[in-house]
Amino acid sequence: MTADPAAHFGRLPATVIEVRDAAVELGGRRVWHDVRVDVAAGEFAAILGPNGVGKSTLLKAMLGLQPLAAGQIRVLATSPARARRAIGYLPQRRSFDASTRIRGVDLIRLGVDGHRWGLPLPGRPARQRKQRIAELVELVGAGRYAHRPVGTLSGGEQQRILIAQALARRPRILLLDEPLDSLDLPNQAAIAALVGRIGRDQGVAVVMVAHDVNPIVAHLDRVVYLGPAGSVVGAPEQVLDSASLTALYGTPVEVLRTAGGRTVVVGVPDSPVGHDHQPVGG
């Protein structure tokens, strides 16, 4: 136990996000407090919890868009606002309207140079940009539909395009807000695997807000559980355990391990905790 952790890991992974005793207030109400998380390069962390506990707010705080009421967040050893250029962000959204007539590649391209002023000039930068866009399309496997108007793509296809956009500037951190929302099960699994693979291969730290842990649990290195009664942070096998989740939600939650080694969480209520939830119909 006294062994040097650096020696154990060979090389200590660099911590890219440090959240220290952070708390946030919205409209005079404290949404969460005393949250401590470290995320290292290449790690995949999930922010989980019921509706309305401030999962997206934590992500916004990591971007420096949400001021803290207490504590501190440091990203890449500096303030979140200053580190923002090195963050790829995927906001929570519903889908693009069918009448949005912009192609997928145009959206990806905006991720590459959309923040630049002036007209794009032809020449070497233009060729590099073209190559980068092609790489990104390849990376997320969107070659088949990237040249179609984004409004005509399915939810899963739109999500891949947007992930490519978020990766455009080779970020060191990827913050994803409910990217699996409103996708069907095969697409949820595919996007989760895609994000996990990109994080590992490119050394990008991934923080994903998720409603349901099951599609991503196999890829996770770290879990942040925000609950109305407090928060728990740790490795998935520590946090995803029946006793701690039951305490967090105040309602029975079971964590099952399948024979194949998969973890399944059962019984997490979907409704915001503390509200009366009346089942509709049978």
Partner: peptide
Amino acid sequence: SLAPGTDRVPAV
């Protein structure tokens, strides 16, 4: 009229 720390959120 809302003191900080109360649970009610004004509907903005």
